[in-house]
Nucleic acid binder design. Structure first.
Length: 748
RNA sequence: UGGGGUGUCGCCAAGCGGUAAGGCACUGGUUUUUGGUACCAGCAUUCAGGGGUUCGAAUCCCUUCACCCCAUCCA
């Protein structure tokens, strides 16, 4: 864990420190109705990661409350994903369906205390009665059923006496709640469907909002972490646990932003569409952001996990650049994977002055990768190089083979082009070259300088291989649908030639094909007879890129239209006028006070104790206003007269405004008289220059770099020095005096 | 539109009143038998906009704007 924790870890740490929980318990709770994707990986990394970091544990729970959509194939995929990423769940896999009996009992309990009822409205009516976001809803007449009636009906629902949709169980909360989710949410619905685990035992199934919080509670979860779209559901989560009066400790819900990656889609629906329409070849298509897809493509779990760590956890909706993921896999593979040679697009080269054949020593790793191992490479007068590595009319800056430019064959000799053979259409079909005998790799005494070393394979020993080159699935950064599909997302190269050392390796191996990228032996289609490799990711390229036009950055000044502010009513206007003219408040402060009834009466009250209207106004309009955002006046631990007293101390320069904030902080938390707080805490301001001066000297002596920077014109640093003085004096130094003194001393 | 959220570099993201972290991307340079890697250097006088409070504001207050979520018997 690094120094700056994400907000979730901060919460967990505080809860552990405060003793709210003895141990942290999280859970990864997917619904088994689809294949997991990299968004799930983020959630897995968060939940299991937090549990690991704080020595707690994490459960894996299948949230299987909708029998119409769920299936065991997804359960398997989900379990595989967690395991593949290297995590272990606590105990057995849990299922919400395991808790159906307990959940049913809780529902009965809710009915018994009059907080749940059986509603028999049809779907349409129910929607109508729910109201809209701006209008309150109406309670169903069935909400008046007696407890006995509800109990009876609910039991009969369970027993399968009714058809789907005839009745539901609802929580009795508030049909006019501003939060739409709280308008008597559904708890149970009738589903005459076979459940993949519970079989046909149940005719009713609990809804997410009822099942989830209680399942968390049953499992002893402490921190229930989910994505942002559940923010509105948090109220129900709390309502259920609170009205059931469950024995503490109970879980609390926290939300984070789900993962989006550019050039791909993440929603279950869109993924399903791609698979079903045949745009991709199944859920494990290497172009898909599914775990199965990344796995088949050749991504390592380490790289995915590292990616999850890099992107962080926050609440802002965001879209991560794929480049970040690509960096992670390159970074991982660079350290791990052997380099071999493969020619994707072969061009024959005949070396006219070479006879016979030989075996060349070729290490698997470059010098900067601390790994051992090498293989023998056979070399003869007929080899293949990549067509891209020869150019008859090279552009400027081309480093490879040309009629005039020699090149090194990696691990072998330097060759020079002598003749270009073309077919009747003018296509290059062969290169005739000569090699330089004394330029052998490792014992080069030729003195020839070349600009690059290229990969090659010997025609006699090389094997044919199929290479599947994957590119991003979509053309757009934020694809909407199939219309944005990149038609070239898969290119199959049938005639690539690969050095035979590769073939002797077992599957589940990754290689770097030199100068091309990282490749993975396809776990399904690979055979020694027809090797098939998937391109995981290319090497970082700086040559091709230069030619691209870099978009000129258009610096547009942000212009924003100001909205209209509601005009003040007559009383507010009168108040405003009095404040600005009589009391000399600035218009902004006067405006804040005049428009807020509680604030203005608080202010008036304070004013009766002390006649320094401006200082009091500033405190009321800023500090008191902050408190009143979350509290009612009668909840405040301080009163107007104490605020007036605080203001007086500021005016008398007994304390600085900085200290005043600290005192105010204390007043809000524990109450108390400001004068007393200042006395007991010894917060009286130090304004005597002779006391502050030596401290400044000390700081100046300790920070010669910053002194130099300040003198060079970095005036921001004034804040740094004053800050240090304040720190040394526990905030008591008079900052105005300190400011003046620092400037004086540094100007010398 | 009512409610709930979120705005810090091209993309993520720290920061919680005292010098705007870090990663990716990008741009130079050094090393290099991968146009890879590694290394060095450069990349926010400014935190959605406007006001206010303060010696000092990304952080506190007011206000405006933009985006996301909520009216499934889905989760």
């Amino acid at each position: 864990m690094n120094k700056s924790r994400d907000f979730l870890r901060t919460i967990v740490e505080e809860d552990l420190k405060s003793g709210r929980y003895k141990e942290v318990v999280t859970r990864f709770p997917p619904e088994p109705n689809g294949f997991p994707h990299i968004g799930h990986a983020k959630s897995i990394a968060i939940n299991f990661g937090i549990a690991n970091d704080f020595h707690g544990h994490c459960t894996l729970r299948m949230d299987d409350t909708d029998p119409t959509k769920e299936d065991t194939v997804y359960v398997k995929a989900l379990k595989d994903a967690v395991k593949w990423l290297g995590f272990e769940w606590e105990g057995d896999v849990r299922y919400t369906s395991d808790y159906f009996h307990k959940l049913y009992d809780y529902a009965i309990e809710l009915i018994k205390i009059g907080r749940a009822y059986v509603d028999s409205l049809d779907e349409e009516k129910m929607r109508e009665y729910r109201g809209t976001v701006t209008e309150p809803g109406i309670r169903s007449k069935f909400a008046n059923r007696t407890i006995e009636e509800n109990l009876d009906l609910f039991e009969r629902m369970k027993n399968g006496e009714f058809k789907d949709g005839e009745h539901v169980l609802r929580a009795k909360i508030d049909m006019s709640a501003a939060n739409m989710k709280m308008r008597d949410p559904l708890l149970y619905r009738i589903r005459d469907t076979h459940h993949f685990r519970a079989g046909d035992e149940w005719s009713i199934y609990p809804m997410y909002d009822f099942a989830h919080c209680l399942s968390d509670y049953i499992e002893g979860v402490t921190h229930s972490i989910c994505t942002l779209e559940f923010e509105n559901n948090r109220d129900i989560y709390n309502w259920v646990l609170e009205t059931l009066k469950l024995k503490p400790p109970r879980p609390y819900q926290y939300e984070f932003a789900r993962l989006n990656i550019s050039y791909t889609v993440m929603s279950k629906r869109k993924l399903l569409e791609l698979v079903e329409s045949g745009v991709v070849n199944g859920w494990d298509d290497p172009r898909l952001p599914t775990i199965a897809g990344y796995k088949r493509r050749g991504y390592t779990p380490e790289s995915i996990l590292n990616f999850c760590n890099q992107i962080g956890i926050a609440k802002a909706n965001s879209m991560v650049d794929v480049a970040q993921l690509e960096f992670c896999i390159r970074d991982d593979l660079n350290k791990k994977v052997p380099r071999v040679m493969c020619v994707l697009n072969p061009l024959k080269v005949t070396i006219e002055n070479y006879e016979g054949s030989e075996e060349l020593d070729a290490p698997y790793y470059p010098d900067d990768v601390p790994k051992e191992g090498s293989r023998k490479l056979s070399f003869s007068n007929e080899i293949y190089i990549d067509r891209e590595d020869f150019n008859e009319n090279p552009p400027k800056g081309y480093f490879r083979l040309t009629p005039k430019q020699s090149v090194r064959l990696k691990h072998a000799y330097i060759i020079t082009c002598k003749e270009v053979i073309k077919d009747e259409n003018g296509n290059i079909v062969e290169i005739k070259a000569i090699y330089h005998k004394n330029s052998k790799s490792g014992s080069d005494s030729s003195g020839i300088k070349v600009k690059s070393a290229i990969q090659w394979v010997d025609t006699k020993s090389a094997k044919k291989a199929e290479i599947r080159v994957y590119d991003r699935l979509f053309k757009n950064e934020t694809p909407q649908g199939t219309e944005d599909i990149n038609p070239n997302s898969l290119k199959v190269i049938k005639n690539a030639m690969i050095e035979n050392a590769v073939i002797t390796q077992k599957p589940d191996v990754r290689f770097q094909f030199e100068r091309e990228g990282y490749f993975y032996a396809d776990p399904i289609d690979y055979s020694d007879k027809l090797p098939v490799f998937n391109k995981i990711v290319g090497l970082k390229e700086s040559w091709g890129k230069k030619k691209k036009v870099s978009k000129p950055r258009v610096q547009t000044k942000k212009v924003q239209i100001e909205g209209v502010v509601a005009p003040m009513n007559e009383a507010e206007q009168k108040l405003f006028d009095r404040y600005t003219t009589k009391l000399n408040l600035n218009s902004e402060v006067a405006n804040i006070l005049a428009r807020d009834k509680t604030l203005s009466s608080f202010y008036e009250d304070a004013l009766s104790h002390n006649k320094t209207p401006v200082t009091i106004a500033n405190i009321v309009a800023n500090e008191v206003a902050k408190e009143l955002k979350e509290k009612q006046v009668d909840e405040l631990k301080f009163n107007p007269s104490e605020i007036a007293e605080l203001a007086k101390m500021i005016d008398d320069e007994m304390i600085s405004s900085k200290i005043a904030k600290e005192v105010f902080q204390e007043m809000t938390q524990n109450g108390g008289n400001p004068t007393q707080i200042v006395e007991t805490k010894g917060l009286m301001q130090i304004s005597d220059p002779s006391k502050i001066s030596p401290i400044i000297d000390e700081i100046i002596a300790k920070n010669p770099d910053n002194v130099a920077k300040f003198r060079a014109g970095n005036s921001k640093l004034l804040g740094f020095f004053v800050g240090q003085v304040l720190k040394k004096t526990n905030g008591k130094a008079n900052p105005k005096v300190a400011n003046r003194l620092v400037i004086e001393k540094l100007k010398q």
